[in-house]
Write a protein that binds this DNA or RNA. Structure first.
Length: 683
DNA sequence: ACGTTAATAT
DNA sequence: TATATTAACG
C-alpha cells in the first residue's frame, strides 16, 4: 500500500463462515480498491493477524458475528486485546442490543447485512481514525463516535477528516517524510506490549535500586543491574516514577502501611510472619509440636506464600468475576463468630497458629523488605507494633534491621482473618473484593444473593443477622488496631474489647444475642436448601477441610447468604507470578510442584455428590437420603462431610484451615511448608 | 541521549 | 482508580 494513494490498496481481512456472503463482501471491497484477504474461520483469521502482527499486514478487519468455533465478538475481543486493528462487525442481526454489544466490545463500526457498497467506501476512515498519531484521538471522546458510526458511509465527513489529518501533526511529518508509511503501520497494527510488574519483578527492581542507592538510581543504571532484557529503559523509568510516588506517599503518611488488601495482588511484596522470637517458638512448640516446623523452616516465617494467599484472594479474577454459579453452603455457627476475635482472658487469638501459653505474636504486619530505601520519617509510622525495622536499606539513623517483629499484644492481630473471611463471603456472592468495604462485609440485606433462586440448588448460608454488625465492627476495629500498641492497659485494644464487643466474652456455642436463633439448630428451612449435607468434594484434603469450614449447620434465622463455590484445587496447574519476597522464597525452592490454591468454579457442577447430574442439576423432587450422602462422602474420601459437627479435624474456621493446610504442606513437602515458585487463584 | 515530569492511554 | 506508555522539556 502506498501512502500517497491511501486508501487504495488498504489491506482488509474479511472474515465470514458463509462463503457466499464472504464472496460478495470480497467483491464489494475489491470494488472499493481495497486489498482483500478472506478467511472463513475466525481462528484462522486470528492466526493470520498474529503472524502478521509485526509486519503489519492488515489495516482493517471486517468480521461476521455469527460463526462456529469462535464468534465475531470473541474475535473482536482478542484482536482488541492483542493488537490495534480496527474491526468492523457484520451481521444480519440489526437489534440495537447486538449492535451495541459490538460497539461496546470495541468494534469501530457495525454493519447490518446486506451491506451496501457505499458503506464500504468509507471504512478506510477507521484506519485513519485509529492511528495513534492522529491528534483527534485525544481530542474527542469515544461516545459520540459510536453513535455516529452506527450510520456509517457518510462520505463528506470523511473527506474533512482526511484533510484535517494532513494539515496537522507537523512535527512528526517533518521527521518522517519517507518513513510515514512504516510508522503508520507500526501504530495501527502493533500495540506496544504493556509491561507487568508482578511481585518478583518489582522486588528485583527494588533490589537493584537498593544496590545502587536510591539517590543514584536512574533508569539506565537500574536496567543494567536488573539485567532483564525484556524491559526497556522507559519501562524502568515509568516504574521508577511510580515507585517514587509510592515512597513519597508512605513518607507523607498517606499510605498507612502496605496491606495486601489495600494494595491488592500487585502490592509491593509484603510478607507476614507468624512468630516473633525463637523463645516463643521454642516455648510454644512444647505444647504444639507442629509449630516446630516454624522453627526449622524460617522460609515459612517470612514466606511469601502466605501473603500470596491473602493477596491473591484479593484478586477480582479469583473471586469477583464469577456470579451466576452454582452455590454451596457456607454455614456459620455461633462459634464462628469468633473468627479471629480475641476473647478476653483466654490469651488466645483465633488464628490458626495458636501459641497458647507462650507470649505470642501473629502475622499482622509487614516484615522486612516490605519497603526499601524509605525515608527516615516514614519509619515513625511504624513505631508501634514492630520491634525491628520493616525497611530494608534504611538510612543510617534508622533502627537496625530485624527479620522478625513483635506485636506487643497477642490480641492485636485479628483483622486479616476476619476481614479475609468477610471478603471471601462477600466475594463469593459475586462482589469483587475491592468493592467490599470493610465495614460492609456482611451487610445483612443490602446485596443479598446475586444468583437467581433457580440457579441455587444447593444449601444456602445462614448467618444470624444480629451478628453482622458485630462482624463489621470487628473488621473495622481490627484493621484500625493492626499496629496499635504497645500501650498501657487502659487504652489498649485488649482493654477496649469488652466494652466494644460485649459478645466476645461469651463462650462458644452458648446462646447469645437478642434472639433465640442460636439455640434452634435445624437444617436449612428453605426448599433451596433441601440438601444441607451436600458438599461437593474432590478427593482432595484441602477441599475436605474447606468443607469443614463451610459445612456447619447454622441457626435458622431470617436471612440467607448464598455463596459461590470455593474450590481448592490440586496442584495440576497454576498460573502465577511470584509475589513473595524472592530473597526468602526462592532460597527454599526445590522445584517441586506447588499447591495450587485455586478457585475453580468450573469443576463444581460435575463433581456434585449424589443426585446432581453432570450439569449440576439436582433432581426435581429433591429428597435425598442424608445418610446416603454421608456414606458416599465417607467412601470416597474417608471424611464425613455435611454434618453439623466439626469435620475432618479442621475445627471449622478459616484460620485453622490455613494452619492445617500449612501443616499438610509441611509433611507433603518434606518439612518445607512453602516451596519457592508460586501459586495462584484462578482462573 | 538521558532523566524527569506531565499528559495520555488502558 | 491504578498503572503503563508517550510526549515534551531541560
Amino acid at each position: 500500500m502506498e501512502a500517497s494513494k491511501f486508501p487504495v490498496g488498504m489491506r482488509v481481512l474479511a472474515v465470514d463462515d458463509d462463503r457466499v456472503s464472504l464472496k460478495i463482501l470480497e467483491k464489494q471491497l475489491k470494488h472499493c480498491n481495497y486489498n482483500v484477504t478472506t478467511v472463513t474461520d475466525a481462528k484462522r483469521a486470528l492466526d493470520m493477524l498474529r503472524e502478521m502482527k509485526n509486519g503489519g499486514q492488515f489495516d482493517l478487519v471486517i468480521s461476521d458475528v455469527v460463526m462456529p468455533n469462535m464468534d465475531g465478538f470473541k474475535l473482536l475481543e482478542l484482536i482488541g486485546l492483542e493488537m490495534d486493528i480496527p474491526v468492523i462487525m457484520l451481521s444480519a442481526n440489526d437489534e440495537t442490543e447486538t449492535v451495541m454489544k459490538g460497539i461496546n466490545h470495541g468494534a469501530c463500526d457495525y454493519m447490518v447485512k446486506p451491506v451496501r457498497l457505499e458503506q464500504l467506501r468509507g471504512i478506510w476512515t477507521h484506519v485513519v481514525r485509529n492511528s495513534k498519531t492522529d491528534p483527534r484521538n485525544r481530542m474527542s471522546g469515544g461516545n459520540d463516535d459510536a453513535g455516529q458510526k452506527l450510520q456509517s458511509g457518510d462520505g463528506d465527513n470523511h473527506e474533512k477528516d482526511g484533510a484535517k489529518q494532513t494539515s496537522k501533526s507537523s512535527k512528526k511529518k517533518k521527521k518522517n517524510v519517507d518513513g510515514a508509511e512504516k510508522e503508520k503501520e507500526n501504530t495501527s497494527t502493533q500495540k506496544k506490549q504493556r509491561v507487568q510488574w508482578p511481585g518478583d519483578l518489582h522486588r528485583k527492581f527494588v533490589k537493584a535500586v537498593n544496590q545502587i542507592g536510591m539517590d543514584r538510581a536512574v533508569p539506565k543504571k537500574i536496567l543494567e543491574v536488573m539485567n532483564v532484557d525484556s524491559l526497556t529503559r522507559e519501562n524502568i523509568a515509568s516504574h521508577l516514577q511510580k515507585y517514587r510516588i509510592y515512597l513519597r506517599k508512605v513518607s507523607e503518611g498517606k499510605i498507612k502501611y502496605p496491606s495486601p488488601f489495600a494494595d491488592g495482588p500487585k502490592a509491593w511484596g509484603c510478607d507476614w510472619m507468624p512468630v516473633n522470637s525463637d523463645t516463643d517458638v521454642a516455648e510454644s512448640s512444647k505444647h504444639h509440636p507442629e509449630l516446630a516446623t516454624y522453627q526449622s523452616a524460617p522460609s515459612f516465617v517470612a514466606s511469601p506464600s502466605l501473603s500470596n494467599l491473602f493477596a491473591r484472594m484479593n484478586s477480582p479474577s479469583a473471586f469477583g468475576a464469577h456470579t451466576f454459579l452454582p452455590t454451596q453452603s457456607v454455614q456459620l455457627m455461633s462459634s464462628q463468630r469468633n473468627f479471629g476475635i480475641p476473647r478476653e482472658n483466654t490469651g488466645q487469638v483465633g488464628h490458626g497458629v495458636n501459641l497458647s501459653g507462650a507470649s505470642q505474636s501473629f502475622p499482622s504486619g509487614p516484615c522486612r523488605s516490605s519497603f526499601a530505601n524509605i525515608s527516615n520519617g516514614a519509619s515513625k509510622l511504624f513505631s508501634h507494633g514492630i520491634s525491628g525495622s520493616s525497611f530494608a536499606n534504611i538510612s543510617s539513623d534508622s533502627p537496625p534491621l530485624a527479620s522478625r517483629m513483635r506485636f506487643p499484644s497477642p490480641h492485636s492481630c485479628s483483622s486479616y482473618a476476619s476481614i479475609l473471611r468477610g471478603k471471601i463471603l462477600g466475594a463469593s456472592r459475586g462482589i469483587p473484593f475491592e468493592d467490599i468495604a470493610d465495614d460492609e462485609m456482611l451487610a445483612p440485606s443490602g446485596h443479598l444473593p446475586l444468583q437467581s433462586p433457580e440457579l441455587v440448588n444447593l444449601p444456602s448460608v445462614q448467618i444470624q443477622s444480629s451478628s453482622a454488625g458485630l462482624f463489621n465492627q470487628i473488621a473495622r476495629e481490627g484493621e484500625a488496631h493492626q499496629f496499635s500498641g504497645p500501650s498501657n492497659s487502659n487504652n489498649s485494644w485488649k482493654a477496649a474489647v469488652p466494652s466494644r464487643f460485649p459478645d466476645l466474652s461469651h463462650s462458644i456455642g452458648i446462646s447469645e444475642g437478642p434472639s433465640q436463633g442460636n439455640t434452634i439448630k435445624i437444617n436449612q428451612p428453605s426448599r433451596l436448601a433441601a440438601f444441607s449435607g451436600q458438599i461437593p468434594t474432590f478427593g482432595n484434603v484441602y477441599q475436605n477441610q474447606i468443607t469443614g469450614i463451610t459445612g456447619k449447620t447454622a441457626p435458622a434465622l431470617s436471612f440467607n447468604e448464598q455463596v459461590a463455590p470455593f474450590n481448592i484445587g490440586s496442584n495440576t496447574h497454576y498460573t502465577a507470578m511470584p509475589i513473595g519476597n524472592s530473597d526468602l522464597g526462592s532460597s527454599s525452592s526445590t522445584g517441586a510442584a506447588l499447591p495450587n490454591f485455586q478457585i475453580d468454579n468450573s469443576v463444581m457442577p460435575t463433581q456434585m455428590l449424589n443426585g446432581g447430574d453432570a450439569s449440576g442439576n439436582l433432581p426435581e423432587d429433591g429428597t435425598i437420603n442424608q445418610q446416603a450422602v454421608d456414606d458416599e462422602v465417607i467412601n470416597s474420601n474417608e471424611v464425613p462431610v455435611g454434618k453439623s459437627e466439626v469435620q475432618n479435624g479442621a475445627s471449622g474456621d478459616l484460620d485453622e484451615f490455613f494452619a492445617d493446610w500449612v501443616n499438610e504442606q509441611d509433611s507433603v513437602n518434606n518439612g518445607d511448608a512453602f516451596i519457592g515458585g508460586d501459586w495462584d487463584f484462578g482462573p
